[in-house]
Amino acid sequence: MIFTEEHEWLRVEGDEITVGITIHAAEQLGDVVFVELPSDGVTVSKDDEVVVIESVKAASDILAPIDGEIIEVNGALTDNPGMVNDDPQGDAWFFKMKASDPSQMDDFMDEAAYQKFIG
């Protein structure tokens, strides 16, 4: 698993990349009550707002970590947004994508570097 400064995690398996938010990010958000996912098959650019996530308190956006195509979304989150708090780095992944330029992931952090980043 690799991590971004936007508090997202990516798991790279072959050319399929699963994306979610970190435990730290889920804690900061508080109780998640609504998740709006992108459509399968959409092409996204790095930093596009692809997911809307709302806690009791406020709405936040999840950005595409890299350029690519969304190939699958986690529909279970729509019915059960609280999964984001229960298992952010497991069952509550947001989407899977294919990268157009895998080198965009070169600067992402490993677990140790991310832990240091969040202090």
């Binding site: 508080g30 109780d31 009550v33 806690s55 009791v56 308190k57 708090n85």
Partner: peptide
């Protein structure tokens, strides 16, 4: 305090 460790939802 906006919330405690219990969180807004459970506190409510």
């Amino acid at each position: 305090p906006v919330q405690y460790p219990m969180g807004v939802m459970k506190e409510h």
